[in-house]
Design a protein around this nucleic acid. Structure first.
Lengths: 349, 349
DNA sequence: TGAATATATTTGATCGATCAAACTTTTCTT
DNA sequence: AAGAAAAGTTTGATCGATCAAATATATTCA
């Protein structure tokens, strides 16, 4: 006996036609109950599985979403995207969606991949990560009417009310606001912030969360507040340097918030006074070291992405039905508090 | 003008038949040069892309490999698999192969997924990670004649010469041997090892690497050697505890080798004397902290996996052509030496 | 040159499912 | 109970590519 059973085999076994078998699988509602049962029994008995490629050829949809696997950047923060990928795959699976990976060396190359995957009916839509202002990829996808959702807001004009595409993002502002408040409630007054140089969409947002919470409380003068801030690029050693600079310029510091776990880890290294340090991303490193951190809630992000991709808008803003549904999801991150019992570090030599 | 151009459109434009167009794409050698050029021009002009699903339906192959995205374990060592995934995707892409992800909650569930993906012609084969002795998944795949390669050796009888399936693994023995030798050459004599309880395929292998190098050198007595070894389960805090135990039972220690970066990180925490510590996996944490570590060379593993999957054996041992080619690849890991300048740590309180 | 061989190209059938429309059976209406 | 409407089921065509076999063209050799 040749290969696997097909619809025709099932139909024959159940004494119905191909189409009825197809209906049982795709629109069970329109098949009479007793017929349906008969067909289902036949499917089970023969161990029938629909041939995905044949279905795709006909329906022109693949139940697959494509996502680019970004090159590992520094490895530490990179793990957020990996966790997102895990969450996305898990939740997509639960909805019968598949996740197809691809890589690309540049935005242009990525567009080539978009075209290939889309033309070949390999995927129904894409999930984009690491978007940036003026991203050519989103423009191309919009122009070609391809479904997609980004993890990361467009950072354009009025992206809340009139976004050019669907997006999900984590509210860094609220994350840092929460972290600042938590320290304030624990009795800290002089709370410092180590962040990235402006302009940086996410970076500016996080800084503003700290800044707003500090000015709202109002117990630190404006000039002191300026001294409590250090700007640097991302990285562990940069964090160490920033911490040292902070100690010089700010005098006493009750707590330190950082724009990333890399910076936070670096800050911890130059932290003999054991000032509480809070990172961002809640990476494995933070967990291992016992560092408080702001968790991006990647599972909620993944859920939001899938909702937008498969929901009312079908992954599109242009050409989608009129609706008052929001075209984005802004996820509030969770502050994970840890007592950093295990790691008192001294400055090297 | 409806959708995308098809072979027929291209054929019409080039003044040839469908099949010739197909030949240009799949066996260019049998098409006369001038015809080929004409067809290629038409393809380019029309922007033709083959419809992947249609091709798969006909050829019964998908140019896609499936891999399960394991649930994150502790996050630190988990990143090895993520790095492997990156490497695999990148190299698969270069060969025109796609990588499809899926998740599963148990080996049985995973088998269900195997069946679904295979029956639906979604994938041509699988890559398995985290295999274990008596793994039901490999048995099922063999029984069903499905192509696959494992990252991780079978740990069965004579898996070198008569493996039940194709595999790629990293030679932990040689990794620890190298690390031990490196310390010996740097002047260390009393080199300790913190490892996992036996039986553990990988764990025992790594331990043996240290043990063999130590006995070969022969400058440490057998009883001392026993005192230089601590056995514990994996984890950061276990590493710290192990290091403390080691100090008590072994007296002076010149260097410490660990079965994982988690253990190594833990060991570093209880390491005021700044004894050199070497981990395993070369995770981002090791890089960030400045910890020597043994790198699993995931890119070579990925290359090996693809070679076995697409090569002579086609991902199968049974039913594959007779051949003297090895049915596995044993990759030598690379020792990455770091001066841990930045992190002298004290024991907490 | 003409038959024999090798090379190049075309035609018809097919992969397995779903769509669209035709057909049959059941249910509702008056 | 007859006709209309609704519900359920079947048939033929189709998605886009490749296979297998047939046909056309070019090359070789006696």
């Amino acid at each position: 006996m040749g290969g696997f059973p097909t619809v025709t085999d099932v139909a024959l076994a159940a004494g119905v036609s191909r189409q009825t078998v197809s209906n049982v699988m795709n629109s069970p509602g329109i098949v009479r109950a007793d017929t349906r049962e008969r067909v289902e029994a036949a499917i089970k008995e023969l161990g029938y599985r629909p041939h995905a490629s044949a279905r795709r050829l006909r329906t022109r949809r693949s139940s697959t979403i494509g996502i680019r696997l970004d090159p590992m950047i520094d490895g530490i923060s990179g793990s957020v995207l990996d966790r997102f990928l895990h969450a996305l795959t898990e939740q997509a699976d639960a909805q019968g969606l598949r996740v197809l990976l691809f890589t690309a060396t540049s935005p242009e190359d990525e567009i080539t991949q978009f075209r290939r995957l889309n033309d070949g009916a390999d995927v129904d839509g894409f999930v984009l990560t690491s978007t940036f202002a003026g991203d050519p990829r989103t423009r191309w996808l919009i122009e070609n009417g391809i479904s997609f959702v980004t993890f990361g807001r467009p950072w354009g004009v009025d992206d809340m009310n009139d976004p050019q595409h669907l997006w999900v993002d984590v509210d860094g502002w609220s994350g840092l606001q929460d972290a600042t408040r938590a320290q304030q409630e624990a009795g800290a007054r002089r709370i410092a912030y180590i962040g990235w140089p402006s302009p940086s969409g996410t970076g500016d947002e996080r800084r503003r969360g700290w800044y707003d919470a500090m000015t709202l409380r109002g117990d630190v003068s404006a000039s002191d507040l300026a001294r409590l801030e250090v700007v640097t690029t991302d990285g562990v050693s940069q964090g160490t340097a920033a911490m040292q600079r902070l100690r010089q310029q700010a005098g006493q510091v009750d707590a330190v918030l950082c724009a990333s776990d890399s910076l936070a880890l670096g800050a911890m290294i130059a932290n003999p006074e054991r000032v509480p340090v809070t990172g961002y991303d809640n990476t494995p490193v933070a967990a291992a070291i016992g560092l408080s951190s702001i968790d991006q809630a990647v599972d909620e992000v993944a859920a939001g992405v899938l909702e937008l991709l498969t929901g009312e808008f079908g992954g599109k803003v242009h050409g989608a039905p009129e609706s008052d549904e929001p075209r984005h999801r802004l996820i509030a991150p969770r502050l994970v508090v840890r007592e950093f019992a295990a790691i008192p570090m001294d400055v090297a030599r």
